[in-house]
Amino acid sequence: MTELTKDTEACAGCGVKLQTEQQDKLGYVPEQALNRTPVICQRCFRIKNYNEVSGTTLNQDDFLKLLSHVGSTKSLVVNIVDIFDFEGSLISGLSRFVGDNPVVLAVNKIDLLPKVTNFNKIVNWVRKQAKEFGLKVVEVVLCSAKQNMGFDRVIQALDEYRDGRDIYVVGATNVGKSTLINRLIRDYSDLDAELTTSHYPGTTLDLVKIPMDDGTFIIDTPGIVYPHRLTELVSKQDLGKLMPDRPLKPLVFQLNEHQTIFFGSYVRFDFVQGERQSFTFYVSNAIPAHRTKLERADELYAEHKGVMLAPPTLEALEQLPKLAKHPVRIPKGKIYDVSISGLGWVKVNSDVGADLMIHVPKGIKVAVRESMI
């Protein structure tokens, strides 16, 4: 058997320890592939070349163990979150792990926001939300790794705050961590490799240390898998529909009480009680909306779920938890959003109050917040 050398003991894609003996275990690499540069495990090879999904992820305890030592290091922590799923992608309790280290909050995927968005207001909104979550940040940077928007400012923030520190990059799955880090590698490192990027959770499985030109390291951590996000539960065929790849075109509905909006078979929005008012839905435009009367909603769902009300297909729907009810009372006096983790959010455009019922697969996070836009 060919022995793994010190230089190839870890996969250059996901960071897992390489091995050549057990094909069904993490880190497997065929012996003949050891001559490639860089050396990546078979799992990363198939993700990169065939976009295949792998069901292998680290459990929550393993994620927390990997983060637990960060507070004892002298580091700059970059927390990447997804503006499209802010509450769902923000790491709960991150402040417990980072200690006194400075935190830069990089808010990715701003290219998905409508083009008329006031980004200064978004920055102020993010700061306020982070503070409510108990996270103290030295800077909020809006960016899009995909469109290379705001990336120069991310680099400037790293230079300003690291002061010779290593940089730990943390985030939930599907927030764009690897895409952002690969841009850093290309611009600021001599390393001839890229991290594995994929739409699927659990792509990076261990700490990946990336040497920078000045002798410090960027340390990529595995994305935390949060089951309260709809994007973690759907089939790989439907994931691309849930995750928009272009600026959102908000849908505005003028609704009377006792009206319902379905988004495929994923989410049902009931306007139970309140004055006639408008609601703006910030949802992937690949998920069709269907309006009906509340009194017909149960019947419509039973007859048309997975067919007219799709995605998902009926077969894929059977793999999801059953819909659970979330009663939501929108108070008077302010403009609020209702966020549905992994789907998007609904802006209640009036401050007169409303009683809503949100139906989502059991376990999916529903939250009320002050309006983002």
Rank of each mutant, 00 (worst) to 15 (best):
V328C: 08
P288W: 07
K293L: 15
I330V: 13
M243L: 15
P227L: 01
T292F: 07
L233T: 02
P312N: 07
S341N: 04
F271E: 05
Y282V: 06
H304V: 04
H290L: 15
V252I: 15
P288V: 04
L251P: 03
A302L: 12
F262C: 03
L320A: 02
F253D: 09
N285M: 10
P312E: 08
L242V: 11
E299A: 11
R291M: 14
S284C: 01
H290P: 05
F281Q: 03
F263R: 06
M308P: 07
T231A: 08
L317V: 06
D298Y: 02
R276I: 07
Q277T: 12
F263I: 04
L242Y: 13
P227D: 08
A297E: 08
K334Y: 11
R268H: 00
H326K: 05
R329C: 11
R276H: 08
A316S: 14
P244Y: 02
I261W: 00
L294F: 10
T313L: 09
G264T: 06
F271W: 05
L242K: 05
D238W: 01
L317G: 01
V283L: 00
R276S: 14
K334H: 12
F271A: 00
G274A: 09
I340K: 04
L239C: 09
R268I: 00
H228W: 09
K322H: 00
S284L: 02
V328P: 05
V234C: 01
R291V: 11
P247Q: 06
S278N: 10
L300A: 06
R229V: 05
P311A: 08
L309C: 01
F279H: 03
S284G: 01
E232Q: 15
K305P: 05
L230A: 07
T231R: 01
G333C: 12
L255E: 03
S235C: 02
G306E: 04
V272L: 11
T280M: 12
P250R: 00
I261E: 03
V328Q: 00
F253Q: 11
Y266K: 00
L294Q: 15
T231F: 10
L233H: 03
I287M: 10
F253C: 02
R291Y: 02
F281T: 03
